[in-house]
Structures are given as C-alpha cells and as structure tokens.
Amino acid sequence: MKRSRSPAAATEVGGAKGDAPAIEVHDLTVSYQAKPVLWDIDVEIPAGKLVGIVGPNGAGKSTLIRAILGLVRPASGWVRIHGESARRGRHGCGYVPQRESVDWEFPVDVRDVVLMGTYARLGWFRRPGKRERDLAMRCLEQVGIADLARRQIAELSGGQQQRVFLARALAQDAQVYLMDEPFSGVDAATETAIFEVLLALREEGRTVVVVHHDLQTVEEYFDHVLLLNLRLVAAGPIGTTFTRENLLATYGGRLTLLDEAAEAVRRGAEGRPGWRPPAGLPRT
C-alpha cells in the first residue's frame, strides 16, 4: 500500500496549486450492458470548492463519481485526480458511498467502520492502534455521534449510518472527497450536521464533490455545480450555471421536476434563502 498523497502530489502538478483543477474528466463515456449512462463528459472540477452534481434520476450522477474513482471501467476517456491517473490518484480520495451499498448487519461496531478510513495509511498487516482509535473518536465527535462508538452498526438509524460513513471519510484525511447522496433519507439534524462538516472541509482547502438530488438546497450548499443528464448540460459557479435555462435543459420534459426547478430558480432570483421543508418530512 503506497499512498502518493496530497502535499507532494499537489506541488508536482506545478506551482499553481490554487488554479490546478482537483479533478479533470476528459471524453468520459460509460455504459452498462451496451447502453451509455454517461456520454462524452468533459469537465474540470476546481480545487477547494464545494461542488454539487445535480440531475434527474438515472442521469449518471453516481456513475460519474464511481468512474472518477475507478470503480467502473469507462468505454472511453480518462480521469485525472490532482494530475495523476485515476488508478493512482484515487488513493488520495475520500469516499462516502451510498448508504445502501453495504450490509449493515455486518458484525462490526461504529468505531470499527471509522477505523477502516485509516487502513490505507497503516499499510499491509499492521493493525490500527491507539493513535488510530483516537483519530476515529475525533472523527466521530466531528459528526456528532461519538457516544455511539461501540454500537453495533445495525442498531443505527439511517441518519446515524450516514454520519458513520462521513466519519470514516474524515478518517481518510483526503484532499478530495467524493460523496454519493450523503443527504439522502436523513433527518434535518443530520442534514445540518453533514453540511457543517462539508463547510469545515472546504475551510481547510479540500475539494468536496457531492451527488445531490434536492434542488431546493443546491444554491445554499454549493459553490459550483455540475448539471448532468447523460451528457454534461452545464458546469460552473452556482451564480452563472444554476439558471432556469440550464435546469430546463437538464430536467427536460419532466413536469413535476420542472416545476420544482423553476421554483428553485425563481427563489434564487429573488435572493432569498431557499424554503426548507419542516423537520422530518421526506424531501422530494
């Protein structure tokens, strides 16, 4: 296990640390069973920003993240992370997968899962020790569930499970974070807690890319947005990219979503913070 990670890697890209994109995606096409799910994506994700990936269901949002991380093999194109090929560069990435992607009946407790974020640094054979356990506890504190450290993971609520994944990603101590719907199906308190962690990560100059499905909160949460629907419809700073025309182009003829999009844009135009559904209600 070798980790060619951040400081050295970042400077290698060249002195222009601030300007070099964290992630470059070039000509990326991905297909499942001979049907394209991502078509010819070209995009650069700037470093040190909170970036949202937005688009309708089945638009390829998760696939884009998985392709960046080298978890699916593209039909064409390539990805660079901090100037390195995805296979090497992804080792410096923090990853928050979808909650449903693992078996929560697995016989481990919360701290065990968070400790997994330290495994790569430990390398082969070495077991996590006191230093790693302390780090895991700090990460759990940061997401507000330190009191659940020794709890079996099956006993957690959905929001708590999501926080465990986030804590594990924090333990990875990465420069680039990729998160697959971290806000999906969580309670309002968890949503706030997660957002605060994202802000803290950006504060430290890290790049955070988040697959997001709630148009209502896009403007509030992100600096930068990728609008995706099989193809990349638009990408750029929120102010110039999250526009009515772009959303119409992204969501196409889907009426309910279209209304929602229009509503979000209208609110944005009036410069008000978005309406938030009351606590506990599921988001559409």
């Binding site: 991380l69 978890l71 992804r90 990853y95 693992v102 481990v108 899962v113 997994m116 495994y119 594990r168």
Partner: peptide
Amino acid sequence: KLICFDPDFAGVEG
C-alpha cells in the same frame, strides 16, 4: 474485514 464489508471503499483506498 475491509473487503468483506465494503469492497468498493477498499478499491478506492488502493
């Protein structure tokens, strides 16, 4: 433990 629980994460971690 890692590859049994979350093989994708293990892959990302190298």
